[in-house]
Design a protein around this nucleic acid. Structure first.
Length: 724
DNA sequence: GTAGTCAAAACAC
DNA sequence: ATCGGACGAATTCGG
DNA sequence: CCGAATTCGTCCGATGTGTTTTGACTAC
């Protein structure tokens, strides 16, 4: 038996033994390590191609990326363990900058959105009715429902500026109380229903507040507010000094709670006007759009004034919103589901007390589906009012110029796992290129634009390649949306360069003369062609259409390498080949039939990615000889910890690992680790490291200022009980 | 004021 | 990016 | 055959490295 397979069986045995007693194997291993210093083992396994990965390792590995500050990139894949001193290199381009904002043409969007841009829209009953445009029949229903709603709303908290912010906070609080998804959806849906009676403007703003946005993602409007500014704002709003605030943050693990706690017992001399949804949303928008000198100061002022005007609860959610995470258990998907339900109530399609779950499900699916193709709440909410959920897909369709949420792949760790999932199904294997996902649109007006994986506009970053699209498109292709990976390309050797090279490309203010990194597109899918959506077609058909519509231009525009394979061995060979060609591994996709359609934003099992493990840390109790000589390995120690945030309050959220450098006789910080731990692990670590806590770092610790942990430890080798 | 440096934020993975 | 936890739905198990 | 147990899929929120952008600050 090889050592590798021993390792595999070790894991396999244990992972089957859920909650039960220790397996004999583990017991034996445990017993040998009775010394107070528990032996641990951290193994870095590199470049393993399959064998070891077949054996149920997934639940017990912690993946890390080892720092590679020497830019010794080409070696990274094969030898990830290059340890170099941490020295900051100065970016020589840092002084060359200008403030420029991406200006987009807004031709395809509704008036409402333009109105919102003026920021000063105030809700009036008249306006809300005027916004109704099409379909007289529905219009009437809407208006009458609205009038009804307005009557109701009078009894609610509301002034001429709209509904109070405190009400949405109460909803948030309710949601926070429970973890039940159905309940959360219900609470949110009822709230949205209530807001619908106040018009689409209001509802839109409520929705945005729920998902922590101020505008669609592709508009590139960012808050420009992070933890640091929030700390300042909290300090200034509550009159505490920064150290007090920071201490409280460590204790609470949540900035919002800090704001709330400090806000309590604080009274202003004069009663402030109560915050409204409009006021809060508009302020967020103003914060997002302010740039330039002393803009940060202005932002802090605005946040401060919001905090002062709001109650303690309101302060909590204002801060969390600005942090970009409400952390109350709902996010985009749940909000969409709730919105669909609210709309169903609103159009009297479903009775509120006794909704048909199946229908509700259907509505929610519709709305989610529409959103993935048109991720713009302004348009969506407006259309929901006018047309209702059921007709939504007819009105809101994929449009070039607005990004589609890209389809994602399910991660797997071996070829056998892939075959297991795709037993009788026809599938295809594609190279997975080591680059950046890019969605390229050619709009009606002939402009070519691109979007990143997260629907950010990346046109400026890749304008050089986008300009050449005339060359790549065949005749008769007017509009399209294609899905591709953009990679750094070495024009000399005609080779693919690693991701790290690509990431050094400028994102803004790109000038032709300054482009140092050339890129090549590897296109693998088409979502839209000449006014027609391709999403429903099978992958086989889409691929055929793709190849017919574009032409290859080596080093600029190529199709992703693919093979339709069936045998394990063939796939393994193809996988190895992909690695040899500087790729990350393979994408395996269903080729034909319904399951092969393009499902935006889904991490579907119909697309699998097979990755090569770069580095893996296995933490467990084991005799060392078991692993001696297995691959490249490295002994690491934990030298510090970071206080956990949110649900990791009270335990360490992450740890700083170091490696012993015999030359310098010091422990050199090498990386941080923060995922892969179960809650039990974290609890155990907390207790364990409590004993080895030290006030100041040892003189023989070497680390960068940025990675300075909150708490220092003795150099401790770790062990992890496995609770699988 | 300008140039250089730093720290925070935003985004890729 | 990766990962673990909580739900809820789907599926299998066991009497 | 039905209820209980188990597995599967989805969503959410913890956390990682490394890069550019940009406002703030500092030294002249």
């Amino acid at each position: 038996m090889t050592k590798q397979s021993k390792l595999g069986s070790f894991f396999q045995t244990n992972s089957k033994n859920a909650k039960s007693k220790q397996s004999p194997n583990e017991k034996e291993l445990n017993g040998d390590e009775a010394s107070p210093k528990i032996v641990d083992y951290l193994q870095l396994q590199s470049g393993t191609k399959g064998e070891i990965l077949d054996s149920n390792l997934s639940s017990s590995t912690n993946t890390i990326n080892v720092k590679d500050q020497n830019q010794n990139i080409s070696d990274t894949k094969k030898n990830p363990m290059i340890i170099v001193p941490t020295n900051q290199t100065l970016n020589e381009n840092q002084h060359k900058r200008k403030s420029a904002r991406i200006v987009e043409s807004d031709n395809s969007e509704s008036e409402v959105e333009d109105e919102m841009k003026t920021k000063k829209i105030k809700y009036t009953q008249k306006e809300s009715c005027v916004t109704q445009t099409k379909s007289p029949e529905i219009k009437q229903i809407s208006i009458s429902a609205k009038v009804q709603g307005i009557k109701d709303a009078k009894s609610e908290e509301k002034d001429s500026n709209g509904i109070y912010y405190s009400e949405i906070c109460r909803m948030f609080e309710q949601v926070e109380q429970t973890t039940k998804r159905l309940e959360i959806t219900d609470i949110t849906a009822k709230y949205f229903f209530k807001m619908m009676s106040l018009g689409s403007d209001h509802l839109t703003k409520c929705v945005y507040l729920c998902v922590n946005q101020v505008a669609p993602e592709y508009k590139g409007i960012e808050l420009g507010v992070g933890e640091s500014l929030l700390l300042k704002a909290i300090a200034s709003a509550t009159g505490k000094n920064m150290t007090a605030v920071k201490e409280e943050v460590e204790k609470c693990g949540d900035l919002g709670l800090v704001a709330k706690n400090f806000r309590t017992n604080q009274r202003t001399l004069f009663p402030m006007p109560k915050l409204t949804i409009n006021k809060v949303f508009d302020t967020f928008y103003e914060i997002s759009t302010s740039t330039g000198a002393s803009s940060q100061q202005k932002k802090v002022q605005k946040i401060t004034s919001l905090l002062v005007s709001g109650s303690d609860i309101e302060a909590k959610f204002i801060i969390r919103s600005l942090e970009g995470k409400l952390r109350i258990g709902f996010a985009e998907k749940t909000v969409l589901t709730a919105l669909a339900q609210a709309s169903a109530f609103y159009h009297n399609a479903e009775s509120k007390s006794n909704p048909d779950p199946e229908k509700m499900n259907k509505y929610s699916e519709i709305l989610k589906h529409v959103y993935t193709q048109l991720p713009n709440y302004n348009i969506l909410v407006e259309a929901l009012f006018t047309h209702g959920v059921e007709k939504l897909p007819l009105v809101c369709k994929l449009v070039p110029g607005i990004p589609v949420k890209p389809m994602l792949a399910f991660p797997t760790k071996s070829v056998s796992e892939v075959l297991n999932r795709f037993k009788e199904i026809e599938f295809t294997c594609e190279y997975k290129y080591d680059g950046e996902r890019i969605q390229i649109h050619k709009c009606e007006d002939g402009k070519v634009v691109s979007f990143s994986r997260n629907s950010e506009n990346s046109t400026e970053k890749f304008y050089d390649i986008l300009e050449k699209f005339e060359k790549f498109t065949n005749e008769g292709v007017s509009t399209f949306v294609i899905d591709a990976e953009v990679v750094a390309w070495d024009t000399q050797s005609q080779n693919i360069l690693p991701f790290q090279v690509l990431s050094t490309r400028k994102r803004k203010d790109t000038k032709e003369s300054e482009i140092t990194v050339q890129v090549c597109l590897f296109v693998f899918d088409i979502l839209y062609l000449n006014g027609e959506s391709m999403l429903q077609k099978s992958l086989n058909d889409r691929r055929k259409i793709l190849w017919e519509s574009f032409k290859v231009s080596p080093g600029e525009f190529q199709f992703a390498e693919y093979k339709n394979l069936k045998e394990v061995d063939d796939i393994q060979i193809f996988l190895d080949q992909s690695i040899a060609d500087n790729c990350e591994g393979l994408m395996v996709k269903v080729l034909n039939g319904e399951e092969s359609s393009y499902e935006p934003s889904k991490r579907s099992r119909n697309w699998l990615k097979v990755l090569i493990l770069v580095a893996c840390i296995y933490l467990f109790i084991v005799k060392k000889d078991y692993l001696d000589g297995v691959g490249d390995s490295l002994d690491l120690v934990v030298i510090g910890g970071y206080t956990g945030k949110g649900k990791r309050t009270g335990v360490y959220g992450g740890f700083l690992l170091a490696v012993y450098d015999p030359d310098q006789e010091e422990y050199q910080a090498i990386c941080k680790i923060g995922t892969g731990f179960s809650e039990a692990n974290l609890k155990e670590f907390k207790e364990m490291f409590e004993k080895t806590k030290i006030e100041i770092p040892k003189s023989y610790y070497s680390f960068g200022e940025a990675e300075k942990p909150d708490v220092w430890f003795e150099p401790t080798q770790v062990s992890v009980e496995r609770y699988i």
